[in-house]
């Protein structure tokens, strides 16, 4: 049985002033035990999709099921099966971590004794035992995210929805959360996460759907998506704007980004001398050239026509961390 089966769902918000198609047509399937990443920029429709799948928003058109249960007609049953940590779901800052876990356990139907036991298990699981009796308002951003994740695990859900779980976290906290998410997957939990970080999708997701303007524009494993571009990405850099403009006329099917031109071809390394010869014979000076296998960044650029903002920031943060 599929963990999640989404068929052509659509969400429109209608008010007196506005008619907004937040999700135009989204379909995907998630197998049990995999991490599925919904990648896209802010406003792409990722969170709206998750809100529909977690029963918090109605579906305007189309259908979706969780473990065979229809999200619209079996919403109560669906909520029993899923854990939810959304950008919109808040944490009570005036309570301690222990009190929050205990309260949530009780609400899920655990007895007082079992709630105490489960609270201790979860505090240990998310590494918050030492801070358990501090009020949540004293927690760091990373601690709050771990707490949020822990709260979504109280009832041992089969499917976990995480909406941008690491947005705003420092690289260290992000890495801790990534490890925890992978560990959950290894224990059989199906995870659907949204992210606007390419590296996060690449690192965590077994399969990825790229969402742009309410539509799924590409779907597959990271390797499949990269292979889908075909060949290698050759990047030409220019110091002089005239050279850049002339090169655009000489090289076909290029994508410009700042002072660079990119071209995707089969067997890129062997084709570089020929390109350089053409450019040189036309008086175009190239400051540097390289051929690389496509990255998810290149895939995103290819399928959407623009680069995902913020992905550069996370890369820089990761590099700083490695140094």
């Amino acid at each position: 049985m599929l963990a999640v089966d989404v068929k052509n769902i659509k969400k429109t918000f209608v008010s007196k002033q506005d008619y907004v198609e937040a999700v135009k047509d989204v379909s995907f399937q998630v197998k049990q035990g995999e991490i599925f990443g919904l990648l896209g920029p802010n406003g792409a429709g990722k969170s709206t999709t998750i809100l529909m799948l977690t029963t918090l928003l109605s579906i305007t058109e189309g259908s979706a099921s969780i473990l065979g249960l229809d999200v619209s007609s079996k919403d109560k049953e669906v909520r029993e099966k899923i854990g939810v940590a959304l950008q919109d779901t808040g944490i009570d800052n005036l309570l301690t971590g222990r009190e929050l876990f205990f309260t949530t356990c009780r609400l899920w139907g655990y007895s007082n004794k079992d709630s105490e036991k489960r609270t201790t298990e979860l505090l240990e699981l998310v590494g918050l035992m030492e801070a358990a009796d501090r009020r949540v308002k004293t927690y760091s951003g990373g601690m709050k995210r771990r707490l949020d994740l822990g709260l979504s695990l109280v009832h041992s859900p089969e499917i976990l929805f995480l909406d941008e779980p690491t947005t705003g976290l420092d690289p260290g906290s992000r890495r801790v959360l990534w490890d925890e998410i992978k560990r959950l997957r290894d224990n059989g939990v199906t995870i659907i996460l949204t992210t606007q970080y390419l590296e996060e999708a690449d690192e965590l997701a077994d399969r990825i759907a790229i969402i742009d303007e309410g539509l799924v524009v590409a779907e597959g494993t990271s390797d499949e998506l990269k292979a889908g571009i075909g060949g290698d990405v050759i990047t030409f850099a220019f110091e002089n704007n005239n050279d850049l403009e002339n090169a655009k006329n000489i090289l076909k099917n290029t994508v410009q980004e700042k002072n660079e031109l990119r071209i995707t071809v089969e067997d890129g390394a062997s084709k570089i001398p020929g390109y350089l010869k053409d450019l040189g014979s036309n008086g175009v000076e190239v400051s540097s050239v390289s051929a690389n296998k496509p990255t998810l960044d290149d895939v995103f650029l290819e399928v959407t026509g623009y680069r995902l903002e913020g992905s550069e920031d996370i890369t820089n943060e990761e590099e700083k961390r490695k140094r």
């Binding site: 918090l56 919109d88 779901t89 709260l151």
Partner: peptide
């Protein structure tokens, strides 16, 4: 957002 958490 606590309200939404309970709704979920």
């Amino acid at each position: 957002g606590v309200f939404k958490r309970y709704q979920s």
